[in-house]
Amino acid sequence: MTATDQVKNQEQPASPGESPMVWAEGVHKSYGRNEVLKGIELTVGRGEVVCLIGPSGSGKSTFLRCINHLERVDGGRLWVDGEVVGYTQRGDKLHELSDREICRRRTHIGMVFQNFNLFPHMTVLDNLIEAPRRALGQKKGEATQRALALLEQVGLQDKTHAYPRHLSGGQQQRVAIARALCMEPKLMLFDEPTSALDPELVGDVLAVMRDLAATGMTMAVVTHEMSFARDVADRVVFFDDGQVVEEGPAARVITDPQHRRTQAFLRAVR
């Protein structure tokens, strides 16, 4: 079933202020014959922190990447902040957006990657102010002021003029978080932010994420850190084989999983 078919005769989401930040209905995604998302139903409410957990290859990262259109959805519907991701609906057709419009919408969604993906040829400060200046048209002074405040927030004000390779993995990831926050996003996506870190550096990054959650930021976090999910997330969603198998309040899913596969997974990662 294509996205176009599903859109027919469906009511529009409620006005942006009331609708959830992320709303997925039957989201499908395939690479060739390999179906990696098999109809995902999921919502992330405003101000909510949702952790996506599950085994490797279960589709949780792919789903996260669909949210800012780094991956194109093949079927179903996915709204972010009341707008269909990557498309605009005219009558009963979904038209793929122009590159420029896709870029504009992405400026409202921050993303943090497993491998940091800082720009190695720029200093920390230049990494932070690049997108605000180019994509939002901010003045250099204005962008720099905000960047310095955010570096202080993640505890790296003394690394302003360092190059990324001179930072530890944990510091790089904190810079990456600050870089995403520079765009003043409405939603933050974290794709296994601590999986590439040495164990003793994980804590610093999680602390920054905890602080961010406390400010009321809407966050979708793909993670294997079960204690983080239990303590910080409002809800946990368990993915397996391209489907949402179980979801619920964080403490309940982590400590008292109902589904057989959730139980097996949580036993294995403990």
């Binding site: 800012n68 780094l70 590159d99 420029r100 870029c103 504009r104 992405r106 400026t107 969604i109 921050g110 993303m111 990657f113 491998n115 993906n117 800082l118 720009f119 690049e130 997108a131 180019r134 994509a135 939002l136 870089r179 995403a180 765009m183």
Partner: peptide, 15 residues
């Protein structure tokens, strides 16, 4: 990953 990071920040392909 560099192109993905730049794209996720809202930079156009040309930028």
């Amino acid at each position: 990953g560099q192109q993905e990071a730049a794209g996720a920040l809202g930079l156009t392909r040309g930028q």
